[in-house]
């Protein structure tokens, strides 16, 4: 199987504080991978480094054999939190900006996603509920035609129905060759969706395993497996 993402001995410090230390992992093309870890484990930082938003690391990150930031950025669609966008802007305006900014942005696909997720593009960004804001971010991210998608906590703080809609949209619109890396700290929400999981703890990857292998070999749910790695196998509940 070909690898879409390869990370070797990644070390990253911010203001002399070590955030990631000697992190290594590879992600096969065409899969949906859960990036799991507690809050503050470095999931978002890792995504920012992969996408090239954050710079100044040691080690190697290659996406489809591309290592330079400029080339990497063309291979990746990273779910921006829209912090830089004008809060008063209407959604349609932001979509228009995206079509100008990204040559690989498919307006047709965005429209299908927006219809499916029932987004009202006349609304202003600041007026969106948390659920609709996340739906909008997912639609924007998945509308780009790239090999690798990074979704940072797309289900954080949203209701069950919104979550189900977003999951369905991922299943409906992911092309066979595309790879999606989804970060989450609540595994159960997305367990059925995942091909495999990458677990980040203590600044590096502590485990990487196929989801059905965890169930078959260890007879454990993904959540138990994840929690056991975090608590060191102790049963403290």
């Amino acid at each position: 199987m070909t690898e879409v993402l390869q990370i070797k001995n990644l070390t990253y410090k911010l203001n002399l504080v070590s955030i990631l230390d000697d992190l290594t992992c590879t992600i096969p093309a065409g899969s949906i991978v859960g990036l799991l870890g507690a809050n503050g484990a470095g999931k978002t930082t890792l995504m920012r480094l992969i996408s090239g938003v954050a710079k100044g690391f040691h080690g190697e990150i290659s996406v489809n054999q591309q290592t330079s930031v400029v080339n990497r950025k063309q291979q990746i669609s990273f779910s921006h939190q829209l912090d830089g966008s004008d809060k008063r802007a209407r959604l349609a305006q932001i979509v228009h900006d995206y079509t100008l900014l990204y040559p690989d942005f498919s307006a047709t696909q965005f429209q299908q996603l927006a219809d499916f997720l029932e987004l009202d593009l006349h609304q202003r960004l600041s007026k969106l509920s948390k659920g609709n804001r996340n739906k909008f971010i997912v639609a924007l991210t998945l509308a780009r035609q790239v090999p690798l998608y990074l979704l940072d906590e797309p289900f954080d703080g949203i209701d069950v129905m919104s979550r189900k809609k977003i999951i369905a949209s991922i299943l409906k619109w992911k092309s066979e060759t595309a790879t999606i890396l989804i970060s989450d700290h609540h595994v159960n929400d997305i367990a059925n969706l995942l091909d495999s999981v990458v677990i980040v703890k203590d600044k590096h990857v502590v485990a990487q395993e196929q989801a059905d292998t965890i169930r078959e070999k260890y007879g454990e749910s993904i959540e138990d497996y994840y929690e056991n790695l975090y608590t060191g196998g102790e049963n403290d509940d």
Binding site: I32, L171, N192, L193
Partner: peptide, 17 residues
């Protein structure tokens, strides 16, 4: 296959397997 994936809310690769 994709329809099955959406209906059962599981990954396409899992359905394929």
């Amino acid at each position: 296959i994709r329809q099955l994936a959406v209906t059962l809310t599981v990954n396409v690769n899992t359905i394929q397997r």
